[in-house]
Every structure is written in C-alpha cells, then in structure tokens.
Amino acid sequence: MDSAIATTQAEHGIAEQQHEHVSVPQHRHHFATPEQQREAGSFGMWLFLLTEIMFFGGLFFAYLLFRNWYYDAFVTASNQLSVPLGAANTAILITSGFFMALAVWAAEVRKQTLLVLFLILTTLLGFAFLGIKADEYHEKYEKHHIPGASFDTSQFINPAAYGLSEKPLAPDAAQKTQLFFFLYFAMTGMHALHMVLGLGILFWLMIRAQRGDFSSGYVAPIENFGLYWHFVDIVWIFLFPLLYLINRHPLAH
C-alpha cells in the first residue's frame, strides 16, 4: 500500500488477513489503521509547511527583486552584517536540528530519558541562536540601522569616515539601504518568531515526554514537531547565504 489514505475496504480486508491487528491507545476510531492515522498526520503537517514555504517565499522573492533593483545599496547594507555571527548561528541551528532528529529516534525506540535530554538540548541551542540574534539586532539598533524615522544613512554616504572600505553611495541610493534592513528584519524576525513559538511547543513536549507520553509507541507529536523545527532550519539555511554572504564581492557595472 503506497498510500494508506487511498486504501479501499477490499484491500483493507486482505491486509487484515495478512497480519494481526495490534490496538494502540492513540488510534482514533475514524482512521482505519494506526498507519493511516500516522500518514494523515504527516500529510497534514506537510500541507501546513507548504503554506509556510509560500509565506517565506514571498519575502525571498521581494529580496531577489529589490537586490536587483537597488544592487549597490543592498551590497553595502549586507556587508554590515557579521559573517562570523551568522555562521555561528547556522552551526548552532544545525546542531539543534540534529538533536531534534535524535529526539525523534529516541521516541521511536522508546528511550524516555534520552528523549527528554535531546529535547532539552534542542531547546538550549534554540535559545543560544536567539541570544546571538538579539545581539545582532542590538548592534543595528545602536548604529541606527533599523528602518524608520531614526534610520541613519551617514555610514553609507561617507563610509571612509567610519573606517569602512565600502563604495560611498549617493544620498538617494543610501536611502535604499533601508529596504535591505527592512527585509533583513522582516525575514530574520519572522524566522525568529517561528523559533520562539517552536521553543514554547518544545517546553510542552518536554513536560509530556517526562510524563512518558511519547515513549510507548506514540511518536506523532514529536515527529510532526520535528518536521516544523527542521523547516525553520531550512529557512535559515537559505537566509544565511542570501543576507550575509552573497554580497561580499560586488560586481562592477
């Protein structure tokens, strides 16, 4: 059976003859089999993640378009971000995702202590990521690089005075750096919001895991949360090169 959802009654009868039914407590009566229930859950989670792809996709598209329109401003503004901090955060988030993957494994093989431990490690690294992000935001605040009334373009108009090696921008072009920072805060901010929500869910999962809810064969909540956490990882895997890395060597016009 490729798809348990598409299983007909007749096929089902055959399947039942082939193996014994084992009843599991999480099985809801409107699903023919626990497998069907599980696949329906994964399918639903993936449909949700596809809406998330479209949501972040709009922001990625805006970045693609405006980077082409206001190339010089995007290059200069992008190079104000710290590559070491961005790279460290990438490694931290990948490590958090690795522990989340191990948490799914621990639930599958019913190791309760390991499951709780891996969920705690996933959470700690999530907080480490947000801490570094907060430090980066604070630096932008101090430099008046947050778009809005107090945005300061002087670093981009006269970079030499600030010890920067960037090409100076004309005042109108320098204003466009606000667009880069707007997208930077919108994209990393929405990403961070997803992480904050994820960390909240992680605490709830930890409490339930500690109670033993997920170490007797009921893995779906851990597995589906894992899908969410890895999705947030993937968004960052693309944000890091696009925001931090690809403008280091601007093209000559």
Binding site: A4, V22, T33, P34, E35, R38, R110, G217, V219
Partner: peptide
Amino acid sequence: ANVTNPEH
C-alpha cells in the same frame, strides 16, 4: 518489537 507502528 516493531511497536512504534505495529501495523506497518
């Protein structure tokens, strides 16, 4: 022993 998903 394939308890996590006994039917599948």
